[in-house]
Each structure stands twice: as structure tokens, then as C-alpha cells.
Amino acid sequence: MALLRVTSPHAHGPASTPRVMQKVLLATVPGIIALTHFFGFGILVNLVWACIVALACEALALALRRRPIGFYLRDCSALVTATLLAVALPPYSPWWLIAVGVACAILLAKHLYGGLGYNPFNPAMAGYVILLISFPVQMTAWAPPRGLGQLPGFMEALQACFWPPGYDGVTMATPLDLMKQNTGLLMTDLYAQTPQFGRWAGLGWEWVNIAFLAGGAWLLYQRIFTWHAPLAMLASLTLFAAIFYDGGSSASGGSPLFHLLSGATMFGAFFIVTDPVTSAVSVRGRLVYGAMIGALVYIIRVRGNYPDAVAFAVLIMNFAAPFIDNYTRPRTYGHKAGG
């Protein structure tokens, strides 16, 4: 029998890219459950429709690029992109909004740059920002959370998605909107007068964030990513919020706890900032990358025109990642610092 001639190493570890992606998908489950609980079936409809569109777009792109379709579809990266985008979109969005977002994410942000591993921008966030800029009305139409209104049923959710004219939904400002619009109230008064704020950071939102935090903690435990970037982001966001809390005055930007548990903070920290393809690679680089995102999130939330800022902050830092890499190379064994 002919002996195999291959080069070392002959052994391989248990890690595999599809498994990494599957674990990321699994880790979004708590967040999806929380979102569904507070905002209804719209999230699930978003999710399923986004996944279908994503797989179709991925297969199309692979076919056009003459790559083995089955082999690359099995890496699950398209499903991850679709899931991350779907949970970021408002529930009860029309089908075309989701389809446009997913198609932009997969085709423009991912495959135009060469596919998985070559995209400079996080595809889900790129898709999200394209939608936010193009369709601001639909993108800011969040349904009221459980407790502040009647949640639509499953059939209504389907209708909202696939037969939008037949659906008459109710929308309500999110806590981040309210915080930005607040001009005269002290923090304590604002919280007391506005039921959307819930206990700490927004009715429903605080639990959604905690659920994503739990999923992220599990991924950290599974060593899917390192703690550096997410913790740096949360730390710098906390720091900024604390500095500019202003004692809870009417000009306050919101408490650190508010910022940590509002909007897409935890989702961003553990599912977007940790995207390895578009982030900095070295340990020090990831610290810088995360911290800068945290700072940008705060600045855009409080001073910018859009209510939430994770997508913009991440895209801006995606630009900077290669630059950060260039200045944060680790010291090689046997070299002097900086060598």
C-alpha cells in the first residue's frame, strides 16, 4: 500500500469553523427567547425569513463565484449573519425590508469582498446600517414591549411580514429615543413618569440585554473568543456614562447601568464586537478596538442623530482594525519590545 506523504503536523485539534458558528448560533437563543417574550412572534418571523434569504443569497453568490456550494454553506456563516441581523431589526418588519438587509449583508458586505474571512466590515451591521439610512421610518418602528400594549399573535406577525398593508401595528419610542428627547426632566422624574424605562434601562430591553450577556458568557466559557474586546467595550462605555452622568440632571446622558442594559449593548459586545474577521487580531489590539467602540457608542448615542449606535461604532472601528493591528503587534519571542 502506498504510504501517504503529507507534512506535519499530522494531528489536528477538535476545533472547526462550522462548530464555532454553530455555537454562536446556539448562544443567541437566550436573547431570542427574551426578545420573543417581550416583543412577540415578530422576532421569530424575522429570523426564519432572514435565514431563508441568507441561504439563498449565499448559494447564489457561491454559484456565481464557482465555489462548492454545499461545502461553504455548511460553515453556517450565512446563518450567523442572518440571525444577527434579524434580531437587530424591529419585529413586524415587512418582508422586503428584511430581504434587502440580508441581501446587502451577504452579497455586498461579504461576497463582493471575497467571502468569509475577507470582508472588512461586519456583514450584519453593514446590512443594518444600509437599512437604517435607506428606510429610517421602518427601521425605528419598534413595537411596544409586553406590559405596555397588546402583543400581536402569530398570524398577525406573519401578516405584518408578508402582507404589510393588512397589518396595522402600534409602535412606541424606545428608551434610548426617550433619553435623547428628554430636555427638562431629572433622571428620577423621567424614570418615574415614563413606563418604558422599566426598572433599570427599559422595560423588556434590560432582560434582552441580560439574556445576550448570558449567551456571550457561555461563548467566552467555550473559548470561542477572548474576553478582551467585549470587556474593553463595556468598560469604556461604563466609564463614559459615569463621567457624563452629571448626577442625574436633566442634561444627563443616562446612567452607566442604563447604557449597559439598553438597546444593543450586550448583543453588540458579545456577538458583533467579537466578530473575528472584522476586528483587530492581537490581544492589545482587541483591547483598543473594544474600548474605542464603547466610547463611540456613548458619543453617538448621546450626541449623534440616531438613537442607537452599536452598528455605526462597529463599522467605524472596522475601518480602523488594520491600523490598530499595525501598532499592536505582540513582541515575538527573542525580540526586544517593539521588534
Binding site: 503529507v6 489536528h12 469553523t17 468569509l116 477572548t226 515575538t332
Partner: peptide
């Protein structure tokens, strides 16, 4: 010992950099 399987795209996960005993950046 696992037969050589087809390589997939590098997702720059950085696991190689984490295990490199020479503190190199293998993905780069």
C-alpha cells in the same frame, strides 16, 4: 490521525495567535 481535510476560509479567529509559542501572528 485525521486525514488532511480541505481547508476552509480563515476567519481570523486568532486561535493560532493564542497558541503560538513564539508570540507570532500566524493569521497575518
Amino acid at each position: 490521525l485525521s486525514a488532511p481535510t480541505p481547508a476552509q476560509a480563515c476567519i481570523r479567529c486568532g486561535m493560532c495567535a493564542q497558541v503560538c509559542p513564539a508570540s507570532l501572528l500566524p493569521q497575518q
